[in-house]
C-alpha cells in the first residue's frame, strides 16, 4: 500500500472513531428519551417509540421541570445582563484609562476566577442563611455574577484593547465625557464581544451545579441541573425516560448556542488574551 493510501485509511478510521466516540452518548440520550421503556436494551424488552416522556416532563406539574426551567432562564438571563454591564464598564476603564491598579486588577480578577467553588460555597451558605436568602433567586444571582465576571471581563478586555484609542480622543475633542464615549462610541463597536460574553455567562450560570445544590432547597429557586440530578419519579423508581427527556430539552438550546458562538469566541480569546 502506498503511503498516501495508508494515510487515507488511517484518517477514515480516525474520523469514524471520533464521530462514534463524540456522538454515541448524545444519540443514546435522545433514543432513551423517546422510548416507552427505557430498559429496552435488556433482552426481554422491546423498543417502542413515544413522545410521552417529553409531554409528561412539560405537563405534569408535580415533576416541577417547568419551574426549574423558568428559574434557570430567569437567573441565567439576569446574571448575563448584570455581569455584561459590570464587565463592559471595567474593561473599558482598563483598556483605555491610565490609573493605579490598571495591571493589578485584571490579574487579580483572573487569579480569583480559578478559585474552586467548594472553597466558597460553605461560607456563602452561612452568609445567605444570615441574610434569609436561602432558596431565593438572589442567593444564586449574586454569587453567579462574581463567578462569571472574570470570564466576561477578559473577553471584553481583549475585544476593547483592539479598538483604537483615536475613537475616544476624537470624541474628547468634541467635549464628550467618558460615560458618553463608553455608551455611544465604544459599546456599539464592542457589541459582538459583549453579546458573546453574555452568552457564555448565561451558559455558565445555566449549567452551574454546586452553588445551586447548596443554596436552594425546592422548586421555588432550584435550577435545571440540580433538578435533573435529583429527579425522582412519581413512584420512586429512577425515571430514566423523564430524565433523558428533561436532559434533551436542557441540552438542545445549549448545543445550538455553543456551536453558533464557539468559533468566534474562542478565536477571539486566544488571539486577544493568550498571544498578547
Amino acid at each position: 500500500m502506498s503511503e498516501r493510501a495508508l494515510k487515507r485509511v488511517l484518517l477514515a478510521l480516525g474520523i469514524v472513531f471520533m464521530l462514534v466516540f463524540c456522538l454515541t452518548p448524545f444519540i443514546y440520550m435522545i433514543v432513551v428519551s423517546v422510548s416507552e421503556k427505557p430498559d429496552f436494551l435488556s433482552a426481554a424488552v422491546d423498543f417502542s417509540a413515544t413522545l410521552a416522556n417529553y409531554r409528561d416532563v412539560l405537563a405534569v406539574r408535580s415533576l416541577h421541570f417547568l419551574d426549574y426551567l423558568r428559574n434557570s432562564v430567569a437567573i441565567g438571563g439576569l446574571v448575563a445582563l448584570i455581569t455584561g454591564g459590570i464587565a463592559a464598564l471595567s474593561a473599558y476603564a482598563v483598556s483605555r484609562i491610565e490609573f493605579r491598579g490598571r495591571v493589578f486588577v485584571p490579574l487579580a480578577v483572573l487569579a480569583f476566577s480559578m478559585f474552586p467553588q467548594i472553597s466558597v460555597v460553605g461560607y456563602l451558605y452561612k452568609l445567605m442563611r444570615a441574610a434569609g436568602l436561602i432558596n431565593t433567586y438572589p442567593a444564586l444571582i449574586l454569587p453567579y455574577i462574581a463567578w462569571t465576571a472574570p470570564l466576561a471581563f477578559w473577553i471584553l478586555l481583549s475585544y476593547m484593547t483592539r479598538i483604537p484609542r483615536d475613537f475616544d480622543d476624537a470624541a474628547f475633542v468634541d467635549g464628550a465625557d467618558r460615560l458618553t464615549i463608553f455608551r455611544k462610541i465604544i459599546l456599539p463597536v464592542a457589541l459582538p464581544g459583549l453579546i458573546s460574553a453574555m452568552l457564555l455567562v448565561f451558559i455558565a450560570a445555566f449549567n452551574e451545579f454546586l452553588f445551586a445544590l447548596m443554596l436552594t432547597s425546592d422548586h421555588s429557586a432550584r435550577t435545571v441541573p440540580v433538578g435533573i440530578a435529583l429527579f425522582e419519579g412519581l413512584h420512586g423508581e429512577v425515571p430514566w425516560g423523564y430524565i433523558m427527556a428533561a436532559s434533551g430539552i436542557a441540552a438542545f438550546p445549549l448545543i445550538v448556542m455553543s456551536l453558533y458562538f464557539q468559533k468566534f469566541v474562542i478565536q477571539d480569546v486566544t488571539r486577544g488574551a493568550l498571544k498578547g
Binding site: 476603564a93 484609562i97 486588577v105 449574586l142 462574581a146
Partner: peptide, 26 residues
Amino acid sequence: DRRTAHLFILPLVVVMVVFIVVPVAG
C-alpha cells in the same frame, strides 16, 4: 479621568470581594 476609571471598575471589584474574597477568607 482616574476617578472615572475607579468608578467604572468599582462594581467589578465589589462583587469579586464580597462574593469570592470574603467567602474564601471566611
